[in-house]
């Protein structure tokens, strides 16, 4: 899916922000793009079903199996996926789009901010690779601060500070007190109450 002209990822949220409706007009191109995205998802569902149907045929059936073996249920599931996918393709093509999910913090009038989504995923991936390098508390601080800044926290150092405190508190409670073996990392290895 092509990213639509992204809005600023870190616009101030809470108190200071401008009222949403006049700031960002929903783009006219959005409905068409949405329809394409929805079509891709429906096709992917059907394709997954097709794959399941084909791959189910190559599951080894031991000779001892009587009646229903390990292939039967996958065939059913694959069939259901194909049926649901095809039905959805028809629905989307006939113009009946899905209802986006609402929520207290979701603004239905703004267009999708793809940059925020991408940056959040990048932050999560950085966190994944950081755990084994710098230890859980610091990786958690990076994750929290990164996500908060991407979502609009300013100034960045306050988010970093909150993240660091949160990471350490969770490490103490879950690692130190509840005995979850979260790796403290090379920097904090020596501190006794942090050890998981």
């Amino acid at each position: 899916m092509a990213p639509e002209a992204p809005t600023q990822p870190g616009e101030p949220t809470a108190e200071a922000g401008p009222p949403p409706s006049d700031a960002l007009e929903p783009a006219a191109a959005e409905p068409t793009r949405r329809k394409w995205g929805e079509l891709v998802l429906a096709l992917a569902t059907a394709a997954l079903g097709g794959y399941v149907l084909v791959a189910a045929g190559s599951i080894t059936v031991p000779g001892s199996t009587n009646t229903l073996g390990p292939r039967a249920f996958p065939y059913l599931v694959g069939g259901l996926l194909v049926a649901a996918g095809v039905a959805l393709v028809v629905l989307v093509l006939s113009g009946r789009a899905g209802e986006e999910e609402g929520g207290e913090d979701v603004d239905p009038t703004v267009r999708t901010d793809w940059l925020t989504v991408v940056l959040l995923v990048v932050t999560l991936v950085v966190h994944v690779f950081a755990i084994n390098v710098v230890g859980w508390p610091l990786a958690a601080a990076v994750l929290f601060a990164g996500a908060a800044v991407v979502l609009g926290a300013r100034p960045w150092w306050r988010a970093a500070l909150v993240g660091l405190v949160l990471g350490l508190v969770v490490q103490v409670i879950f690692g130190g007190l509840l005995g979850l073996s979260l790796p403290a990392g090379p920097l904090l290895e020596g501190v006794p109450f942090l050890r998981g």
């Binding site: 949220t13 809470a14 913090d105 959040l120 999560l124 966190h127 994944v128 690779f129 755990i131 084994n132 859980w136 958690a140 994750l143 929290f144 601060a145 990164g146 996500a147 908060a148 800044v149 979502l151 609009g152 926290a153 988010a159 909150v162 993240g163 949160l166 969770v170 879950f174 979850l180 073996s181 979260l182 790796p183």
Partner: peptide
Amino acid sequence: RHYLYAGIILFGALGSYALNFSP
């Protein structure tokens, strides 16, 4: 809200990491 959702992500990551302690 930025702290709220950052916190949700953090605890989600903790929950799945703590399953097997595997990234």
